[in-house]
């Protein structure tokens, strides 16, 4: 046991928050609300610390080192400083400042997703060339089927009852799979919560 104090704080905090779900006690609410406020503040401070470390720690060191990456890091630092200065002077709600997001951030991220689409499409050409087994064939058929269904190209089938029911039944397959995934996630979250409450798992000590 590395830190019994940390363990006690974690277990007590978890129990208080958990009891707040089941016992509508004002006293528990008065205790739980400040604790959650602390958590939110700490997360905000953690984000600030992460930004400072990323800019002045990681990329500053890369700028000092010789190599091609130093120019990328230099661009990162300059963009950060420019955005910071713009946000301080223009305020976050300024339409000019928001264009930084709408005209820079959004196109860049969308372009990355577009590149991903092209890469996945090219890789799908060799799908059965590498995975020539029954799971590969299932994956191959599923990809084709749901690409076509979600594209809306089969919307005309709504007028044909058999095909409509068939396609509706096919669309329930992912729903069924997703429900199983959700149940698994719920059980996993429950088990993790119990482990943390009893001190068997201590992510705060990492």
């Amino acid at each position: 046991m590395k830190s019994p104090i940390a363990l006690a704080v974690a277990v007590i905090s978890g129990l208080i928050v958990l009891l707040g779900y089941f016992i509508p006690s004002p006293m528990l609410a008065d205790i739980r609300t400040p604790m959650l406020d602390w958590a939110v503040i700490l997360s905000g401070v953690a984000g600030l610390v992460a930004i400072i470390h990323l800019v002045f720690g990681v990329h500053s060191d890369r700028v000092k080192k010789e190599g091609a990456r130093q120019w990328f890091s230099l661009v990162v630092i300059l963009c950060f400083l420019l955005t910071l200065v713009a946000g301080l002077f223009l305020e976050p709600t300024s339409p000019i400042f928001q264009k930084v997001v709408t005209y820079i951030q959004t196109p860049i991220e969308s372009s990355l997703l577009a590149i991903l689409a092209v890469t996945l499409s090219f890789s799908s050409l060799k799908l059965l060339q590498r995975q020539r087994n029954w799971m590969g064939i299932v994956f191959f058929v599923t990809v084709i089927l749901f690409l076509v269904i979600n594209s809306g190209l089969l919307s005309f089938t709504d007028r044909i009852p058999i095909l409509r029911d068939f396609l509706s039944g096919l669309q329930l397959i992912p729903t069924a799979g997703a429900r199983g995934i959700v149940l698994g996630v719920a059980l996993g979250s429950l088990a993790t919560g119990i482990r943390i409450l009893i001190g068997a798992e201590r992510p705060y000590e990492n």
Partner: peptide
């Protein structure tokens, strides 16, 4: 989306013909 589905389909059949890598 239709083009991608077609590419996957064509690629799959071609892969079945070509030797496994």
């Amino acid at each position: 989306l239709g083009l991608m589905a077609s590419l996957v389909l064509i690629g799959g059949f071609v892969s079945l013909v070509l030797p496994k890598t």
